[in-house]
C-alpha cells in the first residue's frame, strides 16, 4: 500500500442517496474510481453532479449508501467515529470552499492546528509551518486573524494547514470558488507546486475551466457518474 504509485483512494460501486422528505436524491450512482499516489486530480461537472458528495465520502466526513471507500488500503466502513476522526487528522487534508479557518486562531495557529492535534513538537511545528507559510507567500501575516486576511490568503492558510502534516491526500472542494481569477490562478499554482515538489496527492473539485486546465487528470461527473476521465501530460 505504500508503493510509489499505489492507490491512495479507491471508490468501489459507490451510491449515495439523500432522503429529503418524500424524495430520494441520488447524488452518486455507482461511482468507481481509483486515485494513485502523487496524482493531481480535478473533479468537474455541473452543479449538483456529486462532486462535493464524492469528496466528503473520500474524506470520511460522510458514509456511502452502498459501496466501499478505501483509503490507503483501509476500508472506512469498518472504522468507529473516533477512528475516523483520527484518520481525518492523520491522513487527509481538507480545504473547503470558504470559512475554512477557526476565527479565534491566528493564521499561524490555524496552519499548525492539525500538526498540534497530532502532537507534533512545537519547534518542529514552527519550522514546518513557517517555511510553508513563506512558500505560499504569507510571510509576515502569521499573527493575523482570519478576518484580517483576504479570501485568497485565507485559502492559502487552509492549504498550509492541509499539507503541513503531509497527509495521504488533500481534498479541496472548490477551493477557488470564492476568490477572483488571479487569486485562483495563484492558488492552483501553489497546489501544483506542492504536488510536484512534495508529491502530495491532490483531489479538488472545480467548475472553473482555467483551473481544470491545470489538472493532470480531469474527471467529469454527470448525475453522480463518471462521464469522462482523461489524463494529460501537461503541467
Amino acid at each position: 500500500m505504500n508503493a510509489p504509485n499505489g492507490p491512495v483512494v479507491e471508490l468501489k460501486e459507490i451510491t449515495k442517496i439523500y432522503s429529503q422528505g418524500e424524495i430520494d436524491v441520488h447524488a452518486l450512482n455507482g461511482l468507481d474510481l481509483t486515485i494513485r499516489r502523487g496524482e493531481f486530480v480535478a473533479l468537474c461537472g455541473p452543479s449538483g453532479s456529486g462532486k462535493t458528495t464524492a469528496l466528503n465520502l473520500i474524506g470520511a466526513l460522510d458514509k456511502p449508501t452502498s459501496g466501499e471507500v478505501w483509503l490507503e488500503g483501509e476500508r472506512l466502513s469498518t472504522l468507529s467515529r473516533q477512528q475516523l476522526s483520527h484518520l481525518r487528522r492523520d491522513r487527509i487534508g481538507f480545504v473547503f470552499q470558504a470559512f475554512n479557518l477557526i476565527p479565534v486562531l491566528t493564521a499561524y495557529e490555524n496552519a499548525e492546528s492539525v500538526l498540534a492535534l497530532q502532537g507534533c513538537p512545537a519547534t518542529e511545528r514552527r519550522d514546518r509551518v513557517m517555511s510553508l507559510l513563506t512558500e505560499v507567500g504569507l510571510k509576515g501575516m502569521e499573527d493575523r486573524r482570519p478576518h484580517e486576511l483576504s479570501g485568497g490568503q485565507q485559502q492559502r492558510v487552509a492549504i498550509v494547514r492541509a499539507i503541513a502534516s503531509e497527509p495521504a491526500v488533500v481534498l479541496a472542494d472548490e477551493p477557488t470558488a470564492n476568490v477572483d481569477s488571479e487569486t485562483a490562478d495563484k492558488l492552483i499554482e501553489i497546489m501544483a507546486q506542492l504536488n510536484q515538489d512534495r508529491g502530495i496527492t491532490f483531489i479538488f473539485s472545480t467548475h472553473d475551466t482555467r483551473v481544470m486546465e491545470r489538472a493532470r487528470r480531469l474527471i467529469r461527473l454527470v448525475d453522480g457518474r463518471i462521464s469522462s476521465d482523461s489524463s494529460t501530460a501537461a503541467t
Binding site: 474524506g59 466526513l61 476522526s85 481525518r88 492523520d90 481538507f94 473547503f96 470559512f99 475554512n100 477557526i102
Partner: peptide, 15 residues
C-alpha cells in the same frame, strides 16, 4: 455549527 464542522473535519474528536 460550521466551525465545529471544520474542527471535526481536521480531526477534532467528539470528546
Amino acid at each position: 455549527v460550521r466551525e465545529f464542522g471544520i474542527l471535526k473535519a481536521i480531526g477534532f474528536g467528539p470528546f
